[in-house]
């Protein structure tokens, strides 16, 4: 038996979500039709609004519906001469949660990955270069992920910084807080040793 055209359309639309195949899409569609039409309408409105209006912040490239995001629009933070570079808006959020960092951000929306064909221009590094040349930044903190691609990205940006006489630092990586050395993998431990600090 085939579903009616509207239901089929709904199921197909759900399949664009990550990790959702035919079966889950079907389950979602019928759940909403049977039990939660209000929720579904709210969802459709929220989806529509977000997709129509959310864009990249013109300064830090994170997602926002305004021209400048909250952080870039905050005068106090704009005066900070520290800039933190992260790979994704989720990373930015994680750092914001710590309330430790009071400076500005730059969100790359990915990392350099030659095999995937992602180069510096895809990460908005042209804009970043202009930011460096603007002379408002004293130090760039490179908070890209501790993966090989993340390292390559950090290194590339560090080179841009040194060409512009801006200091660049990399976040430390090593043993997680509250962790036990016994259970930590060898590579992380090696990093922890090579990045040790004198007390």
């Amino acid at each position: 038996m085939r579903f009616s055209p509207l239901i089929t359309e709904l199921i197909d639309a759900f399949k664009c979500l990550p990790g959702v195949g035919q079966k889950s899409a079907q389950r979602m569609a019928f759940q909403l039709l049977e039990r939660n039409r209000d929720g579904a309408l709210t969802l459709s409105k929220a989806l529509h609004n977000a997709m129509e209006h959310v864009q990249h912040c013109s300064q830090c490239r994170t997602f926002t519906e305004t021209h400048l995001c909250d952080i870039c629009g905050n005068g106090k933070r704009q005066q900070s001469r520290l800039l933190c570079v992260v790979e994704s808006p989720q990373d930015l959020h994680a750092i914001e949660q710590t309330a430790e960092f009071k400076g500005r951000y730059f969100v790359l929306m990915g990392h350099l990955s030659p095999i995937d064909g992602i180069g510096p221009t895809d990460l908005g590094l042209d804009d970043f270069n202009l930011l460096l040349k603007g002379g408002e930044i004293d130090e760039v903190i490179l908070a890209t992920n501790p993966t090989v691609e993340g390292e390559a990205t950090a290194h590339y940006i560090a080179q841009m910084c040194s060409a512009n006489n801006v200091a660049a630092s990399r976040i430390a990586h090593g043993v997680p807080f509250g962790g036990e050395l016994e259970y930590i993998d060898g590579n992380t431990l090696t990093h922890a040793f090579s990045g040790r600090k004198t007390l």
């Binding site: 030659p114 095999i115 090989v148 390292e151 390559a152 290194h155 060898g186 090696t190």
Partner: peptide
């Protein structure tokens, strides 16, 4: 399993390593 320590490439050597990988791929 690891079959020896990871090779730590830096600077240009890291980009060269990525080049070898792309070539092989």
């Amino acid at each position: 399993e690891a079959n020896g320590a990871a090779l730590h490439l830096q600077d240009k050597a890291l980009f060269s390593g990525l080049y070898l990988n792309e070539l092989l791929n």
